[in-house]
């Protein structure tokens, strides 16, 4: 790689702005409480609105209130995996030092969210469709996403050398991205029991405002909560490695002394 001359704009400087763990810690110092607090506020309002003030659906009745959990979980499951794949690219291509740590921390949170998406979907499907689970394209592709998350977690821990684990997991994360468009378009490509998306970029939402508003508040709250969890976990991971480094440095200096 050619050396950049001083004064020349460094390529990818933006990416490396947060490469320094110390800088990230300073960022997280105010970002984490901010994200946590705003997530708490949005979720409190959203949950109360969803449970008591939003209208019951004309055919689903009150069971429609599960939508306010299921839809954010489904969107975050896909979004979290996209973030995981982005970390994989940053790690493989740019060797970004924080990307691997972030991938380790996003994985379990994403797996829990995907699991919740499946569980809430099941709890919604039983009273509405009449089945806990069916093997249609939408449900199956989300189950595949769940296993991709689990595989990612397992792969990172499978190697003695953490660097090799990071690399293998990054490859899996990037390859698994194929599942995201399959999940998104499964309801349009094949006929499924699962209904098509109510909220799309191309069409007006097929949902009245009285349901759309609480849904967007819940979605904002859960997204902020996801961001807060990942930021906090990354902060904890950096602090843990720092403690580890201090411990080894101390052990080395003690060995040198004796």
């Amino acid at each position: 790689m050619p050396e950049t001359l001083p004064g020349q704009p460094v390529k990818g400087a933006f990416l490396h702005r947060f490469a320094n763990p110390g800088r990230f810690l300073r960022l997280a110092h105010w970002l984490f409480p901010l994200l946590s607090a705003s997530s708490g506020i949005f979720l409190t309002i959203g949950m109360i609105w969803a449970l008591w003030f939003s209208p019951a659906d004309w055919q689903q009745g009150d069971a429609v209130r599960i939508m306010y959990l299921h839809v954010p979980m489904a969107m975050l499951a896909s979004g979290g995996y996209a973030a995981l794949a982005l970390c994989g690219v940053l790690s493989l291509v740019w060797k970004h030092p924080l990307a691997d740590l972030a991938a380790v921390e996003i994985g379990p949170v994403g797996a829990v969210i995907t699991g919740l998406c499946l569980v809430t979907g099941s709890l919604w499907g039983k009273p509405m469709w009449g089945a806990w689970w069916v093997w249609d394209a939408r449900l199956t592709s989300v189950l595949v996403l769940f296993f991709l998350y689990l595989g990612h977690i397992a792969l990172i821990q499978a190697f003695d050398d953490p660097q090799r684990g990071y690399r293998a997991a990054a490859v899996l994360a990037i390859a698994g991205v194929i599942d995201l468009p399959i999940i998104k378009f499964s309801v349009n490509w094949w006929n499924t029991l699962h209904q098509p998306d109510s909220i799309t970029l191309t069409h007006a939402p097929t949902m009245p405002e009285s349901m759309l508003l609480p849904l967007s508040i819940c979605l904002t709250g859960f997204s902020l909560g996801f961001a807060a969890l990942v930021t906090g976990r990354l902060q904890a991971a950096i602090l843990e490695t720092r403690a580890e480094q201090m411990l080894t440095r101390r052990a080395r200096s003690q060995n040198g002394l004796s």
């Binding site: 659906d57 689903q60 009449g130 069916v134 109510s198 949902m207 009245p208």
Partner: peptide, 18 residues
């Protein structure tokens, strides 16, 4: 042997539908 109901993507408050 089994019948499943498929609901579509439109949501509507009960009062509006009535």
């Amino acid at each position: 042997s089994e019948v499943l109901a498929k609901h579509d993507e439109t949501y509507m408050p009960k009062e509006v539908a009535d």
